[in-house]
Amino acid sequence: MRTINVSVNGKQYSHEVEPRMLLIHYLREVIGLTGTHMGCETSLCGACTIEVDGKAVKSCTMFAVQADGAKILTVEGLAAPDGTLHPIQEAYWTEHALQCGFCTPGMIMITKQILERNPNPTEHEIREGLDGNLCRCTGYQHIVNAVRTAAKAGA
């Protein structure tokens, strides 16, 4: 067991964990934030995307011990404390960019990174940016719209 200290959505946590515990399981089962989802075990679906030290990563392909000392942001940390949605969340809602919702937290988190690096992406750049995230429901078109809408909102 190892002790790790992490900041998650602005709150500080300290836990003893097994080295093999995946970061996603730490977030979901130890801290109790179940918004981040596990969709595959081969690092190819992106449902588990979160932000670690400002970078979008797949939390199913990281051990919790590797995040020791890191600043983590999950989908639960996006909205303002008063419940005001983040502009990307608003955009996903407005554009009907989700159906079953399972991939959505990961999609929202990768959208944040796409727009941080390229505030005004083309359709092609959006589609390339979403390459690590699978959605089986939407055919991606409304997700592309949502990323554009979020970009316009200056997200």
Binding site: T49, K55, G132
Partner: peptide, 9 residues
């Protein structure tokens, strides 16, 4: 290589 998340790590 891979995707944004993979390239980040």
């Amino acid at each position: 290589i891979g995707d944004i998340q993979v390239r980040n790590r």
